[in-house]
Protein backbone atom coordinates (compact mmCIF):
# COMPACT_ATOMS: atom_id res chain seq x y z
CA UNK A 1 0.00 0.00 0.00
CA UNK A 2 2.80 2.36 0.76
CA UNK A 3 4.71 1.61 -2.43
CA UNK A 4 2.95 4.09 -4.71
CA UNK A 5 3.74 6.93 -2.34
CA UNK A 6 7.41 6.18 -2.20
CA UNK A 7 7.76 5.62 -5.93
CA UNK A 8 5.59 8.45 -7.31
CA UNK A 9 6.66 11.35 -5.06
CA UNK A 10 10.35 11.30 -5.96
CA UNK A 11 9.35 11.57 -9.68
CA UNK A 12 6.91 14.47 -9.16
CA UNK A 13 8.83 16.44 -6.60
CA UNK A 14 11.91 17.43 -8.59
CA UNK A 15 9.90 18.65 -11.58
CA UNK A 16 7.45 20.56 -9.39
CA UNK A 17 10.32 21.97 -7.33
CA UNK A 18 12.14 23.03 -10.46
CA UNK A 19 9.04 24.72 -11.87
CA UNK A 20 8.37 26.35 -8.53
CA UNK A 21 11.93 27.60 -8.33
CA UNK A 22 11.71 28.98 -11.84
CA UNK A 23 8.23 30.48 -11.52
CA UNK A 24 9.73 33.92 -10.96
CA UNK A 25 11.48 33.64 -14.34
CA UNK A 26 8.83 31.66 -16.20
CA UNK A 27 5.85 33.82 -15.32
CA UNK A 28 7.11 37.07 -16.92
CA UNK A 29 8.25 35.11 -19.97
CA UNK A 30 4.82 33.47 -20.26
CA UNK A 31 3.23 36.93 -19.89
CA UNK A 32 5.40 38.20 -22.74
CA UNK A 33 4.49 35.29 -25.02
CA UNK A 34 0.80 35.72 -24.19
CA UNK A 35 0.91 39.44 -24.95
CA UNK A 36 2.72 38.92 -28.26
CA UNK A 37 0.22 36.23 -29.28
CA UNK A 38 -2.74 38.39 -28.23
CA UNK A 39 -1.65 41.55 -30.07
CA UNK A 40 -0.55 39.57 -33.14
CA UNK A 41 -4.01 38.07 -33.41
CA UNK A 42 -5.77 41.38 -32.84
CA UNK A 43 -3.76 43.62 -35.17
CA UNK A 44 -2.02 42.80 -38.47
CA UNK A 45 0.29 45.80 -38.04
CA UNK A 46 1.70 44.49 -34.74
CA UNK A 47 3.78 41.46 -35.74
CA UNK A 48 6.03 43.15 -38.31
CA UNK A 49 9.78 43.69 -38.42
CA UNK A 50 9.25 47.43 -38.52
CA UNK A 51 7.19 47.32 -35.37
CA UNK A 52 9.74 45.08 -33.63
CA UNK A 53 12.37 47.74 -34.32
CA UNK A 54 9.90 50.28 -32.99
CA UNK A 55 9.44 48.39 -29.71
CA UNK A 56 13.18 47.90 -29.24
CA UNK A 57 13.80 51.59 -29.86
CA UNK A 58 11.05 52.59 -27.43
CA UNK A 59 12.46 50.49 -24.57
CA UNK A 60 16.10 51.43 -25.13
CA UNK A 61 16.28 54.43 -22.81
CA UNK A 62 14.36 52.60 -20.08
CA UNK A 63 16.72 49.65 -20.59
CA UNK A 64 19.85 51.70 -19.93
CA UNK A 65 18.33 53.18 -16.76
CA UNK A 66 17.02 49.76 -15.69
CA UNK A 67 20.49 48.19 -15.84
CA UNK A 68 21.75 50.54 -13.12
CA UNK A 69 18.56 50.09 -11.17
CA UNK A 70 18.92 46.30 -11.31
CA UNK A 71 22.25 46.58 -9.47
CA UNK A 72 20.65 48.78 -6.83
CA UNK A 73 17.57 46.59 -6.35
CA UNK A 74 19.69 43.43 -6.21
CA UNK A 75 21.44 45.07 -3.25
CA UNK A 76 17.99 45.43 -1.61
CA UNK A 77 18.12 49.21 -2.01
CA UNK A 78 16.13 51.57 -4.23
CA UNK A 79 17.04 54.58 -6.38
CA UNK A 80 14.18 57.01 -6.91
CA UNK A 81 16.45 59.60 -8.52
CA UNK A 82 17.15 57.77 -11.80
CA UNK A 83 14.79 59.84 -13.93
CA UNK A 84 15.75 63.19 -12.49
CA UNK A 85 19.48 62.40 -12.75
CA UNK A 86 18.86 61.43 -16.39
CA UNK A 87 16.96 64.66 -16.94
CA UNK A 88 19.59 66.80 -15.22
CA UNK A 89 22.42 65.17 -17.20
CA UNK A 90 20.63 65.64 -20.51
CA UNK A 91 19.94 69.27 -19.67
CA UNK A 92 23.55 69.80 -18.52
CA UNK A 93 24.79 68.35 -21.81
CA UNK A 94 22.57 70.74 -23.80
CA UNK A 95 23.54 73.61 -21.51
CA UNK A 96 27.21 73.03 -22.35
CA UNK A 97 26.53 72.78 -26.11
CA UNK A 98 26.20 75.65 -28.58
CA UNK A 99 22.48 76.33 -29.11
CA UNK A 100 20.61 77.96 -31.94
CA UNK A 101 20.16 81.74 -31.63
CA UNK A 102 16.41 81.28 -31.08
CA UNK A 103 17.03 79.37 -27.83
CA UNK A 104 16.66 81.78 -24.96
CA UNK A 105 19.02 80.18 -22.42
CA UNK A 106 22.09 81.83 -20.92
CA UNK A 107 24.22 78.72 -21.40
CA UNK A 108 27.96 78.02 -21.35
CA UNK A 109 28.80 76.40 -24.69
CA UNK A 110 32.05 74.44 -24.84
CA UNK A 111 34.01 73.51 -27.96
CA UNK A 112 33.75 70.05 -29.55
CA UNK A 113 32.45 67.19 -27.51
CA UNK A 114 33.85 68.46 -24.20
CA UNK A 115 30.34 68.69 -22.86
CA UNK A 116 30.01 64.87 -22.94
CA UNK A 117 32.65 64.01 -20.31
CA UNK A 118 31.54 66.98 -18.22
CA UNK A 119 27.92 65.84 -18.27
CA UNK A 120 29.02 62.31 -17.36
CA UNK A 121 31.12 63.73 -14.54
CA UNK A 122 28.06 65.67 -13.39
CA UNK A 123 25.88 62.56 -13.11
CA UNK A 124 28.69 60.65 -11.37
CA UNK A 125 28.93 63.48 -8.84
CA UNK A 126 25.22 63.16 -8.12
CA UNK A 127 25.69 59.40 -7.76
CA UNK A 128 28.62 59.94 -5.41
CA UNK A 129 26.53 62.24 -3.20
CA UNK A 130 23.79 59.59 -3.05
CA UNK A 131 26.33 56.87 -2.27
CA UNK A 132 27.86 58.99 0.49
CA UNK A 133 24.46 59.73 2.01
CA UNK A 134 23.38 56.10 1.99
CA UNK A 135 26.61 54.37 3.01
CA UNK A 136 28.40 56.92 5.20
CA UNK A 137 25.67 59.04 6.78
CA UNK A 138 23.27 56.10 6.92
CA UNK A 139 20.25 57.72 5.29
CA UNK A 140 17.87 55.04 3.94
CA UNK A 141 18.18 54.89 0.16
CA UNK A 142 14.45 55.58 -0.28
CA UNK A 143 14.79 58.94 1.51
CA UNK A 144 18.25 59.81 0.16
CA UNK A 145 17.27 59.23 -3.45
CA UNK A 146 14.00 61.08 -2.91
CA UNK A 147 16.10 64.09 -1.95
CA UNK A 148 18.34 63.49 -4.97
CA UNK A 149 15.23 63.38 -7.16
CA UNK A 150 14.46 66.93 -6.03
CA UNK A 151 18.07 68.02 -6.46
CA UNK A 152 18.19 66.64 -10.00
CA UNK A 153 14.94 68.38 -10.88
CA UNK A 154 16.25 71.57 -9.31
CA UNK A 155 19.47 71.49 -11.32
CA UNK A 156 17.49 70.96 -14.52
CA UNK A 157 15.11 73.81 -13.72
CA UNK A 158 17.94 76.15 -12.80
CA UNK A 159 19.82 75.51 -16.04
CA UNK A 160 16.98 75.84 -18.55
CA UNK A 161 14.62 78.08 -16.52
CA UNK A 162 11.53 76.77 -18.22
CA UNK A 163 13.01 77.08 -21.70
CA UNK A 164 13.87 74.33 -24.16
CA UNK A 165 17.29 73.49 -25.64
CA UNK A 166 17.53 71.43 -28.80
CA UNK A 167 21.17 70.86 -29.70
CA UNK A 168 23.58 68.24 -28.33
CA UNK A 169 27.02 67.18 -29.65
CA UNK A 170 27.04 65.27 -32.95
CA UNK A 171 28.26 62.04 -31.34
CA UNK A 172 25.31 62.00 -28.95
CA UNK A 173 22.91 62.93 -31.75
CA UNK A 174 24.16 59.97 -33.78
CA UNK A 175 23.94 57.52 -30.88
CA UNK A 176 20.54 58.81 -29.78
CA UNK A 177 18.75 59.25 -33.08
CA UNK A 178 20.92 57.76 -35.84
CA UNK A 179 20.94 54.24 -37.29
CA UNK A 180 23.39 51.70 -38.67
CA UNK A 181 21.40 50.48 -41.61
CA UNK A 182 18.01 49.45 -40.24
CA UNK A 183 19.24 49.19 -36.63
CA UNK A 184 18.97 52.33 -34.50
CA UNK A 185 22.19 53.17 -32.65
CA UNK A 186 20.27 53.60 -29.41
CA UNK A 187 19.26 49.92 -29.56
CA UNK A 188 22.92 48.96 -30.04
CA UNK A 189 23.97 51.09 -27.06
CA UNK A 190 21.18 49.68 -24.87
CA UNK A 191 22.10 46.11 -25.87
CA UNK A 192 25.75 46.77 -25.04
CA UNK A 193 24.86 48.20 -21.63
CA UNK A 194 22.56 45.24 -20.91
CA UNK A 195 25.22 42.74 -21.96
CA UNK A 196 27.90 44.48 -19.88
CA UNK A 197 25.59 44.54 -16.87
CA UNK A 198 24.85 40.84 -17.30
CA UNK A 199 28.55 39.91 -17.61
CA UNK A 200 29.47 41.95 -14.55
CA UNK A 201 26.69 40.45 -12.43
CA UNK A 202 27.26 36.88 -13.59
CA UNK A 203 30.99 36.49 -14.07
CA UNK A 204 32.75 38.87 -11.69
CA UNK A 205 33.43 38.84 -7.97
CA UNK A 206 31.75 42.23 -7.69
CA UNK A 207 28.60 40.75 -9.24
CA UNK A 208 28.55 37.90 -6.73
CA UNK A 209 29.00 40.38 -3.89
CA UNK A 210 25.99 42.33 -5.16
CA UNK A 211 23.84 39.19 -4.82
CA UNK A 212 25.33 38.44 -1.40
CA UNK A 213 24.65 41.94 -0.10
CA UNK A 214 21.06 41.78 -1.30
CA UNK A 215 20.45 38.17 -0.27
CA UNK A 216 21.77 38.34 3.25
CA UNK A 217 23.58 41.51 4.26
CA UNK A 218 24.67 40.24 7.65
CA UNK A 219 26.16 37.08 6.21
CA UNK A 220 27.93 39.13 3.56
CA UNK A 221 29.44 41.36 6.22
CA UNK A 222 30.59 38.37 8.25
CA UNK A 223 32.16 36.95 5.09
CA UNK A 224 34.31 40.05 4.76
CA UNK A 225 32.40 41.70 1.92
CA UNK A 226 32.64 45.50 1.97
CA UNK A 227 28.89 45.99 2.03
CA UNK A 228 29.01 49.79 2.05
CA UNK A 229 31.45 49.81 -0.87
CA UNK A 230 29.23 47.48 -2.88
CA UNK A 231 26.11 49.57 -2.23
CA UNK A 232 28.02 52.77 -3.02
CA UNK A 233 29.28 51.26 -6.27
CA UNK A 234 25.74 50.20 -7.20
CA UNK A 235 24.54 53.77 -6.64
CA UNK A 236 27.35 55.10 -8.85
CA UNK A 237 26.55 52.57 -11.59
CA UNK A 238 22.90 53.60 -11.39
CA UNK A 239 23.79 57.29 -11.75
CA UNK A 240 26.13 56.57 -14.67
CA UNK A 241 23.44 54.57 -16.48
CA UNK A 242 20.88 57.29 -15.82
CA UNK A 243 23.28 59.94 -17.10
CA UNK A 244 23.97 57.98 -20.29
CA UNK A 245 20.25 57.44 -20.81
CA UNK A 246 19.59 61.14 -20.23
CA UNK A 247 22.13 62.22 -22.82
CA UNK A 248 20.87 59.80 -25.45
CA UNK A 249 17.28 60.60 -24.50
CA UNK A 250 17.76 64.27 -25.28
CA UNK A 251 19.05 63.31 -28.73
CA UNK A 252 16.26 60.79 -29.24
CA UNK A 253 13.47 63.19 -28.28
CA UNK A 254 15.12 66.15 -29.98
CA UNK A 255 14.94 68.50 -27.01
CA UNK A 256 16.02 69.03 -23.41
CA UNK A 257 13.41 70.39 -21.03
CA UNK A 258 12.35 70.16 -17.41
CA UNK A 259 10.59 67.04 -16.11
CA UNK A 260 10.92 65.42 -19.53
CA UNK A 261 11.91 61.98 -18.22
CA UNK A 262 9.63 61.78 -15.18
CA UNK A 263 7.84 58.62 -16.28
CA UNK A 264 11.13 56.72 -16.64
CA UNK A 265 11.30 56.29 -12.87
CA UNK A 266 8.21 54.09 -12.69
CA UNK A 267 8.93 52.50 -16.07
CA UNK A 268 12.41 51.42 -15.02
CA UNK A 269 11.30 50.12 -11.62
CA UNK A 270 8.40 48.29 -13.30
CA UNK A 271 10.71 46.73 -15.88
CA UNK A 272 13.06 45.40 -13.20
CA UNK A 273 10.32 44.10 -10.90
CA UNK A 274 7.92 42.80 -13.56
CA UNK A 275 10.85 40.88 -15.03
CA UNK A 276 11.14 38.96 -11.79
CA UNK A 277 13.95 40.65 -9.86
CA UNK A 278 13.00 40.71 -6.21
CA UNK A 279 12.41 44.11 -4.61
CA UNK A 280 13.87 42.54 -1.47
CA UNK A 281 17.22 41.96 -3.17
CA UNK A 282 19.44 39.01 -3.97
CA UNK A 283 17.32 37.41 -6.69
CA UNK A 284 16.96 38.23 -10.37
CA UNK A 285 19.31 39.82 -12.84
CA UNK A 286 19.67 41.46 -16.23
CA UNK A 287 17.91 38.57 -17.99
CA UNK A 288 14.83 39.26 -15.89
CA UNK A 289 15.11 42.97 -16.60
CA UNK A 290 15.19 42.29 -20.36
CA UNK A 291 11.97 40.26 -20.11
CA UNK A 292 10.39 43.01 -17.99
CA UNK A 293 11.39 45.64 -20.54
CA UNK A 294 9.87 43.61 -23.36
CA UNK A 295 6.64 42.98 -21.41
CA UNK A 296 6.25 46.72 -20.85
CA UNK A 297 7.34 47.60 -24.39
CA UNK A 298 4.98 45.10 -26.03
CA UNK A 299 2.12 46.16 -23.76
CA UNK A 300 2.54 49.89 -24.44
CA UNK A 301 3.06 49.36 -28.15
CA UNK A 302 0.40 46.69 -28.64
CA UNK A 303 -2.36 48.72 -27.02
CA UNK A 304 -1.76 51.40 -29.66
CA UNK A 305 -2.27 48.84 -32.43
CA UNK A 306 -5.62 47.67 -31.13
CA UNK A 307 -8.83 49.65 -31.57
CA UNK A 308 -10.09 50.41 -28.09
CA UNK A 309 -11.21 53.25 -25.86
CA UNK A 310 -8.20 55.45 -25.05
CA UNK A 311 -9.35 55.77 -21.46
CA UNK A 312 -9.41 51.98 -21.12
CA UNK A 313 -5.79 51.56 -22.23
CA UNK A 314 -4.35 53.04 -19.05
CA UNK A 315 -6.50 50.75 -16.90
CA UNK A 316 -5.51 47.66 -18.89
CA UNK A 317 -1.84 48.57 -18.61
CA UNK A 318 -2.23 48.85 -14.85
CA UNK A 319 -4.10 45.55 -14.57
CA UNK A 320 -1.48 43.62 -16.57
CA UNK A 321 1.30 45.09 -14.41
CA UNK A 322 -0.63 44.18 -11.28
CA UNK A 323 -1.03 40.61 -12.51
CA UNK A 324 2.70 40.36 -13.19
CA UNK A 325 3.50 41.71 -9.71
CA UNK A 326 1.08 39.30 -8.03
CA UNK A 327 2.82 36.41 -9.79
CA UNK A 328 6.17 37.84 -8.68
CA UNK A 329 5.13 37.95 -5.02
CA UNK A 330 3.48 34.53 -5.24
CA UNK A 331 6.68 33.08 -6.69
CA UNK A 332 8.66 34.63 -3.86
CA UNK A 333 6.31 33.03 -1.32
CA UNK A 334 6.51 29.59 -2.94
CA UNK A 335 10.26 29.77 -2.92
CA UNK A 336 10.34 30.78 0.74
CA UNK A 337 8.02 27.90 1.65
CA UNK A 338 10.17 25.50 -0.32
CA UNK A 339 13.28 26.72 1.52
CA UNK A 340 11.58 26.48 4.89
CA UNK A 341 10.43 22.94 4.08
CA UNK A 342 13.90 21.77 3.50
Amino acid sequence: MSTPVTTVMPDRDPLWSRLRAQLRNLAPFATLIALVALFSSLSPSFATWGNLANILQQVSITAIIAVGLTFVILCAEIDLSVASVANATGILLAFLTVQDASVNIANLPLPGGLSIPLALAGCLMLGAVTAFGVTRIGIPSFIMTLAMLQIGNGIGALLVRGQIAYTVPDLVTTLGSGSIGPVPWIVVVASTVLLTGHLVLTYTRFGRYVYMVGGNREAAEHSGVGVRAIIGAAMLISAACSGLAGMLGVAYFGSAQQNQFDNYLLDAISAVVVGGTSLFGGQGGIGNTIIGLLVLGVLNNGLDHVRMDSFLKILIRGLVLLLALVINVYAQRLRSHARAAG
Binding site: S45, T48, G50, N51, N54, Q57, Q58, I61, I164, Y166, G249, F253, G254, S255, Q257, Q260, F261, D262, N263, Y264, N300, N301, D304, H305
Partner: peptide
Protein backbone atom coordinates in the same frame (compact mmCIF):
# COMPACT_ATOMS: atom_id res chain seq x y z
CA UNK B 1 3.81 63.25 -20.68
CA UNK B 2 6.33 64.02 -23.41
CA UNK B 3 7.99 60.61 -23.48
CA UNK B 4 4.72 58.67 -23.37
CA UNK B 5 3.37 60.76 -26.23
CA UNK B 6 6.56 60.17 -28.20
CA UNK B 7 6.03 56.41 -27.81
CA UNK B 8 2.42 56.78 -28.95
CA UNK B 9 3.42 58.85 -32.00
CA UNK B 10 6.13 56.30 -32.85
CA UNK B 11 3.38 53.67 -32.85
CA UNK B 12 1.15 55.95 -34.89
CA UNK B 13 3.93 56.41 -37.45
CA UNK B 14 4.30 52.65 -37.88
CA UNK B 15 0.74 52.40 -39.22
CA UNK B 16 -1.00 53.73 -42.31
CA UNK B 17 -3.42 56.69 -42.06
CA UNK B 18 -5.27 58.94 -44.46
CA UNK B 19 -4.34 61.93 -42.29
CA UNK B 20 -3.20 62.66 -38.76
CA UNK B 21 -3.60 65.55 -36.30
CA UNK B 22 -1.30 66.12 -33.33
CA UNK B 23 -1.03 68.52 -30.42
CA UNK B 24 2.46 68.12 -28.94
CA UNK B 25 2.85 68.04 -25.18
CA UNK B 26 6.63 68.52 -25.34
CA UNK B 27 7.75 70.90 -28.03
CA UNK B 28 10.40 69.37 -30.27
CA UNK B 29 9.92 65.82 -28.97
Amino acid sequence: NATRQRGAIDNMASQRWDFVAIQAFGIGT
